[in-house]
Amino acid sequence: MEPINWHSVFFLLFALVGCGFSVAVLLTSNVVRMAFYLVLALAATSGLFFLAGADFVGAMQIMIYVGGTLVLLIFGVMLTARGPFISMRTPAGEWILGAIIGGSLLVVLLSAATSVRAWRPVAVAEGEARPTATRLGMALLGARVDKLEEPDPTQREGMSGYLLPFEIVSVHLLVVLVGSAYLARPKKRAVGSTAETV
């Protein structure tokens, strides 16, 4: 018997949890349970990231996606989940239409995913998964340390890092901060009770 490949075992575990709970998000009609399943699906995805050697992105996924975005989402769910909005059923016609379109999309994507030979599993070379945090930080500041040994000089010129996107994202976040504060501002004392939202 071949020895068990633990990497594959953990991959299967996280992949099953992730896919299973994303399907559960789709199938349940209770919005609070949807949020809970989404938490589990995204947490399992971060496990997949760790397994792919992307430790920083995995931790980021837990920190920002699961710990920040989804808490916000559940916060919103709790503010609005009352009476008829907890469980809103979808008409059967939409389900059938959705299943046809989604199923065909899934078939296309799966056939694409499995058809390319270069994406097939390869035996992993020794010492390939190195810590990524420092290199990612350098790349965000404009220095691509992973491309320094690029033999092709034309390719090396295009590898100037991600400083500009980083700045754009920072400004974007600031805009979002101001914008959402503006959207959620208290009304001019007309309604009164709706003031404290976010």
């Binding site: 809970f36 931790a59 837990i62 710990g67 559940i74």
Partner: peptide, 16 residues
């Protein structure tokens, strides 16, 4: 390698 980050992130999940 990202232990500090990981612990802070995971502790934030307790709120769920």
């Amino acid at each position: 390698n990202v232990a500090v980050f990981f612990i802070v992130a995971v502790l934030g999940l307790e709120v769920f």
